[in-house]
């Protein structure tokens, strides 16, 4: 049918199909899934130690449209768990995301639009924590690979949001490339309401790690008992090394 059609119609059909494919590929070029959001009257206490991780800097306030996630490595289509919260614990979001097969940086898009983007646009970026966890059942396993999010193209630093759980002292370090260690600049700020997290640790990543995963070691001194050391795996996506 197409071959018998006049040239103009043939060109139109080709253009239409090209646009359709382009649209489909654009839709696929995102990390999407069903995200449950809540903006509660009372703050939720995060049960996890690492509440958020972010590559690069960001604008002054939260812009969910520019929130990006990473598909860390090439491979078959995978799933990741998404979590986000604000420092006062009032905003909480979680959901399962489908990651594109191709490694890269993609926008995080809920199936329905973000419900509370207006409320969150009032929050400075340092008061909003988000991360992805590479696990299927989203039960908050400490072994799951943490994939940081990003608001910008920047790749020179990593900010980790920590719920110190009233630790007297806290330090954090990234161990990369078989022993090379980056000590984080950690700052516990209590001038605001601190429900979901209270500490931000910034790591200088100007010297790029060569491996795809780094180990985050957090050492806390509790009110009672000996200091506790916990280790987490953090992804350093291929995209950032290029």
């Amino acid at each position: 049918m197409l071959f018998r059609a006049p040239n103009k119609l043939r060109v139109f059909a080709l253009c239409l199909s090209a646009c359709c494919f382009a649209g489909t590929s654009t839709f696929a070029q995102s990390i999407s899934g069903v995200i449950t959001e809540d903006f509660a009257e009372q703050g939720n206490v995060s049960g996890t130690l690492i509440v958020g991780a972010r590559f690069g800097d960001a604008g002054p306030n939260v812009d969910l449209d520019s929130l990006r996630g990473f598909s860390p490595t090439n491979g078959k289509r995978r799933r990741a768990c998404f979590m986000a919260t604000t420092k006062d614990g009032l905003y909480h979001a979680e959901g399962v995301l489908d990651l594109p097969r191709r490694a890269g940086r993609y926008p995080i898009r809920p199936r329905k639009d973000w419900r509370f983007s207006g409320e969150l646009s009032e929050y400075p970026v340092d008061f909003f924590a988000a991360l992805m966890l590479m696990e299927d059942n989203c039960n908050g396993s400490g072994d799951a690979l943490i994939v940081p999010t990003a608001f910008s193209e920047g790749r020179d630093d990593l900010t980790v949001y920590i719920n110190s759980r009233r630790a007297l002292m806290l330090s954090a370090a990234l161990v990369v490339d078989d022993g090379w260690k980056i000590v984080g600049d950690c700052n516990t700020q209590r001038d605001e309401r601190t429900i979901a997290f209270d500490t931000l640790c910034v790591f200088d990543l100007r010297r790029k790690p060569s491996s795809e995963t780094m180990e985050l070691v957090v050492t806390r001194t509790p009110r009672r008992g000996a200091a506790l050391e916990e280790a987490f795996k953090i992804a350093y996506p291929q995209t950032l090394r290029q």
């Binding site: 719920n163 009233r166 009672r224």
Partner: peptide
């Protein structure tokens, strides 16, 4: 001075806030 704490998780499971 600071008096009191926000309701946050304790470090140890047996601790109260």
């Amino acid at each position: 001075i600071q008096i009191g704490e926000e309701p946050a998780n304790s470090l140890g499971y047996g601790d109260k806030n």
